[in-house]
């Protein structure tokens, strides 16, 4: 049954049909699939499936990516309340858009995808100051700061990632809290994350989960 559900769910996501995707999930629950299997064997693989074809010809598009994340978050929220035991949270990230940046779509996609992968996100919203990124990471005991930037000057400017890095250094937190960045400017220059002194970047919300897990491993070592 699991393969059949996964295939139908993937197709609904590919067609950006939220209503159908939710119906497939609820039908599967009625037919006896566990909430855990729905999250880990249907939703998470669908995120990975989208990742492989994202940006390739007429493969998965930004619209499908958006829908993947939105539905993943909806389903995960619903299923978590039905889990037999609380799942292990892999890590925690505070995430927001850089100061002066009011474009929240990418951040929203990342949060949706991370939720299904059991990475907890604290959404700091738009136009977040460097100080707030660090203060909130400490407050929430997050291992990662995520900075999303749609515009070059908010990615590269003095009040973006560079300042967050400076504050982390000043407070001796650079080894404890890592920085991941993402957004349009990083797609145009894959080395830009190094210039702004981030630890890593992710091309899309789906890849963000994989990159975050690597960073979390680095922190543990």
């Amino acid at each position: 049954m699991i393969n059949e559900v996964r295939k139908a769910y993937n197709q609904a996501i590919f067609d950006t049909d939220k209503i159908l995707a939710m119906r497939i999930v609820h039908d599967a629950l009625d037919r006896g699939l566990s909430p855990e299997d729905i999250v880990f064997k249907v939703v998470v693989p669908s995120i990975e499936y989208m990742s492989t074809s994202f940006g390739q010809d007429f493969g998965a598009s930004l619209a499908q990516h958006f829908m993947t994340a939105q539905i993943a978050a909806l389903v995960t929220d619903e299923m978590l309340s039905k889990f037999t035991s609380p799942p292990e949270i892999v890590g925690k990230i505070v995430i927001g858009t850089s100061q002066g940046d009011f474009h929240g779509l990418g951040k929203k996609i990342v949060i949706g995808c991370l939720k299904a992968q059991m990475i907890e996100s604290v959404d700091l919203g738009l136009n977040v100051s460097p100080e707030k990124f660090v203060d909130e990471a400490i407050e929430h005991n997050a291992q990662i700061i995520g900075i999303s930037s749609m515009m070059l000057h908010t990615a590269r400017g003095e009040n973006g990632c560079l300042k967050v890095r400076q504050i982390l250094k000043e407070r001796n937190l650079a080894d404890k809290i890592k920085i991941i960045v993402g957004g349009a400017p990083y797609r145009y220059n894959h080395d830009l994350y190094k210039l702004v002194q981030a630890d890593a970047w992710a091309e899309n919300g789906i890849d963000a989960g994989l990159v975050l897990k690597k960073l979390l491993e680095e922190i543990k070592q």
Binding site: D15, T16, S61, L62, A63
Partner: peptide, 10 residues
């Protein structure tokens, strides 16, 4: 652009 939308949506 096909980066933004699927063939179906396009």
């Amino acid at each position: 652009s096909p980066y933004f939308v699927s063939a179906k949506l396009f």
